[in-house]
Amino acid sequence: MSRSAGVEKILARPTVGAVLSGGWRAERPVVDASKCKLCGVCWLFCPDAAVEVSEAGVVIDYDFCKGCGICARECPFKAITMVSER
């Protein structure tokens, strides 16, 4: 059973990248893989769900990372540093 066009039009759909929030960033987090122990704390506390952790390492999605710096501050191994975008 499909919805009518009028109802469909007022619904918003789940979208990765509702906005390209990476453009808001003044500083970018840069991960030093040699210090990273893959503990996942950066992933856990990222407000923007912009951190991926796998066995291959930590990857930050710069399309959406807003550069808040929580990951760098919370990293127990000081493996993340904030670098100016300018």
Binding site: P14, T15, V16, G17, A18, V19, L20, S21, W24, R25, L38, C39, G40, V41, W43, L44, P47, D48, A49, A50, V53, D61, D63, F64, K66, G67, C68, G69, I70
Partner: peptide, 22 residues
């Protein structure tokens, strides 16, 4: 290993409009 303890599925998708550090 936080990502092993807590569910990896995201229900608040990246690209949302919260302020940095919200």
């Amino acid at each position: 290993m936080a990502h092993r303890v807590f569910p990896r599925e995201e229900y608040l998708l990246k690209g949302h409009v919260a302020c940095p550090g919200c």
